[in-house]
Simulated scan of single mutants.
Amino acid sequence: MSKVRVAGFSVSIDGFGAGPEQSLNDPLGKRGPELFEWFFPTQTFQGMFGKEGETEGADAKYASSAMSGFGAFILGRNMFGPIRGEWPDENWKGWWGDNPPYHEPTFILTHHARESIVMEGGTTFHFVTGGIEEALARAKAAAGGKDIKIGGGVSTVRQYVQAGLVDEIHFAISPVVLGRGEAMFAGLDLPALGFRLTARDATGKATHIVLQK
């Protein structure tokens, strides 16, 4: 049975899932890349650029599972790009170039309609204006029985978790204190939502936590 999963979601020790002031130059916000020091050396990340990376160890294992086995992805609009409001034109097609790393149907939550975009490598971006449940229904229909990944950002993950629509969460707690940014846990009662800790692995760059219902 397919699951709805949050996977490879990095947060700081003080609970921020992105830095402040996201922009074209800082897509993860100020200091946001520090949250992903565990992810960058892995083969999962380096392979996106045709390079060799780490394949052994917990970081590599969790990186691989965070991007494999999914039949569809759901992203908030901030994860797709820095543009706000109405789409000024059709030029912006995401942060990732012509061949995004998803390789499956990817549903973008937005308040502003836009035609779907077919990219290289099997990724098609679909823009959903009907909210999180419509996006999930469409993702499930497209996933072919595989899992669906809620890819972020923070607001999108929080909405799906609070609505009781997520089955499993993998947080990578990075040894970084940001002080400011997008707070992941404020007002989020994970035990009350039915989550329990099922796995924990610590490396020099992250503590990996898996929570399941």
Rank of each mutant, 00 (worst) to 15 (best):
S2A: 15
S2F: 05
K3R: 12
V4S: 03
V4E: 11
R5I: 14
R5F: 01
A7F: 02
A7N: 09
G8R: 01
G8C: 04
G8I: 08
S10Q: 11
I13K: 11
I13Y: 12
D14M: 08
G17A: 13
A18D: 13
A18Q: 13
Q22D: 04
S23G: 10
N25Q: 14
D26R: 09
L28Q: 13
L28P: 00
G29E: 07
R31E: 15
G32W: 03
G32Y: 05
G32K: 05
P33I: 12
F36C: 06
F40T: 03
T44N: 03
T44K: 00
F45W: 10
F45Q: 00
G47M: 08
M48F: 03
G50T: 02
K51A: 13
E52K: 14
E52V: 14
E52Y: 04
E54G: 03
G57P: 07
D59W: 06
D59Q: 05
K61F: 13
A63W: 01
S65Q: 13
A66M: 06
M67K: 02
F70G: 08
F70W: 04
A72C: 08
A72D: 05
I74G: 06
I74A: 06
G76N: 09
R77I: 12
M79N: 11
P82W: 05
I83D: 07
I83G: 02
R84N: 12
R84Y: 11
P88W: 02
P88Q: 03
D89L: 10
N91V: 13
W96S: 13
G97P: 08
D98H: 07
N99G: 01
P100F: 07
P100A: 09
P101L: 12
Y102W: 13
Y102E: 07
H103N: 13
H103E: 12
H103S: 14
H103M: 06
E104Q: 13
P105Y: 00
T106G: 08
L109W: 02
H111N: 15
A113P: 08
A113R: 12
E115M: 06
I117W: 00
V118P: 01
G121E: 10
G122M: 06
T123A: 04
T123E: 01
T124S: 11
H126L: 06
V128P: 01
T129W: 11
G130S: 15
G130E: 15
I132T: 14
E134D: 15
L136A: 09
A137G: 13
A137M: 08
A139R: 01
K140C: 08
A141R: 08
A143H: 05
A143V: 03
A143L: 11
D147G: 06
I148R: 01
K149V: 10
K149D: 05
I150R: 02
I150V: 15
G152M: 09
G152V: 13
R158N: 09
Q159D: 15
Y160P: 00
E168F: 00
I169K: 04
A172R: 03
P175R: 08
P175I: 02
V176Y: 14
V177M: 14
E182Q: 15
M184L: 11
F185V: 09
G187I: 10
G187V: 10
G187C: 08
L188I: 12
L188K: 07
D189I: 07
L190M: 11
L193R: 08
F195E: 06
D201R: 13
A202Q: 14
A202C: 09
A202W: 03
T203P: 11
G204V: 05
G204W: 01
K205W: 07
A206G: 12
V210S: 12
L211P: 01
Q212Y: 00
K213F: 01
